[in-house]
Computed example of a mutant assay.
Amino acid sequence: MMKTLPVSMFFTALLFFASTGCYAADSIELPQEFLDARPSHQLYMAYAEFKMGHHDLARQMWQSIGGSGRSEALFNLANLYIQGVGVNKDPQRAMQLYRQSAETGSRAAAYQLGLIYLHSAEYQNRDQARHWLTVAALDGDSDAAQQLANLNNDDPADPLSRVESLLVNGDADQALQLLHTLATATPPDNRAITRLAWLYESGLAVEQDITRAAELFAQAAEAGNAEAQYALSVMYQTGVGQPQDSQLAAQWLQRSAAQSYQPALDKLANPAD
């Protein structure tokens, strides 16, 4: 789940997902604890299930979330359809969901739409790209603001923009090579390290390696990347990739929230849930 994700993550948006689930679609009774929770905590619970490989359960959770959690839930559903995780890959459906999410207030979805309209061969539309990047930038997204500046001034693009362009167009091997180059540069690009962590966690373009993903999340988190800090918090909370440790989970959540990372702020807003 990426920006507002990872619940985001992925991009923070192209989020990188595993391709297998542990539940049969459309046959899951949602836990009462989930049904009774507030939307912010429902999002956290769905994300935790997703990280544990329970993709169908996570999907049904996201489908049921309303109220203040609706826009982020729609964003996460769109990511499933763009990657074909637990559902048939359907870019058109993904675009519909991204737009619904953006129109109901998701900054991450607005940024994602901007990137797709900027880079995708199928959907390329500079006017739409400029519109959605402007929406995200006005909502405080610094990456969107930089993309908009590059678009308006023809400046050299952020290297991660090139990664996203490659991924949107299905060039995962080249994207992976560029990510490795950025992650091992001096100094390393901690955003690239976080992206690599998502890849290793999901098994997309590389062999799935949860241990390696945990190492990369920890490296980027220690260096101050808020997205990685949140992902590491979830690992400690769920016991996937790290030993279950509620104290460390809370510490990393606090550090992520201190940088105004929205999913972390949402989780802290309802600590009793």
Rank of each mutant, 00 (worst) to 15 (best):
M1Q: 07
T4Y: 09
L5D: 09
P6F: 11
P6D: 06
M9F: 05
M9H: 02
F10D: 11
F11V: 13
A13Y: 01
L14K: 10
A18G: 13
S19D: 10
S19F: 08
S19A: 11
G21I: 06
Y23V: 08
A24M: 04
A25F: 13
S27H: 08
S27F: 00
E29T: 14
E29I: 08
L35I: 15
D36Q: 13
R38V: 12
P39M: 09
S40N: 12
H41E: 06
L43Y: 01
Y44P: 00
A46P: 07
F50A: 15
K51T: 07
M52Y: 00
G53Y: 02
D56H: 11
D56A: 14
I65F: 03
G67D: 09
S68T: 13
S68R: 11
G69W: 06
R70F: 00
S71C: 14
E72N: 14
L74Y: 04
L77Q: 13
L80W: 03
Y81V: 07
I82H: 06
G84N: 07
V85A: 14
G86Y: 03
V87L: 03
K89Y: 00
K89A: 12
D90R: 11
P91T: 12
R93I: 03
L97G: 09
Q100C: 02
S101L: 06
A102Y: 07
T104R: 05
S106G: 03
Y111N: 12
Q112R: 12
L115N: 15
I116S: 03
E122S: 10
D127K: 13
Q128K: 15
W132I: 05
A137L: 02
L138R: 12
D139S: 10
D141E: 15
A144H: 08
A144Y: 08
A144W: 08
A145P: 01
Q146R: 15
Q147I: 03
L148D: 08
N150W: 02
N152R: 12
N152L: 12
N153Q: 15
N153K: 13
D154R: 13
A157I: 13
P159Q: 11
L160P: 00
R162V: 14
S165W: 07
V168L: 15
D171Y: 14
D173K: 14
Q174H: 13
A175M: 04
T181N: 06
L182C: 11
A183Q: 01
T184R: 01
T184V: 00
P187D: 06
P187G: 09
P188K: 10
P188Y: 06
D189T: 07
I193G: 01
R195W: 03
A197C: 02
L199A: 14
L204F: 05
L204E: 08
R212I: 05
A213I: 09
A214K: 04
E215T: 13
E215I: 07
A223K: 15
G224I: 10
G224Q: 05
N225R: 05
N225Q: 15
Q229H: 03
Y230E: 11
A231S: 14
L232H: 10
T238M: 01
T238E: 11
G239I: 09
G239Q: 10
G239E: 09
Q242F: 00
P243M: 03
P243H: 07
S246W: 01
L248P: 08
L248Y: 01
Q254T: 12
Y261R: 00
P263K: 00
A264M: 11
D266V: 05
D266R: 11
D266M: 12
A269V: 05
A269P: 05
A269N: 13
A272M: 10
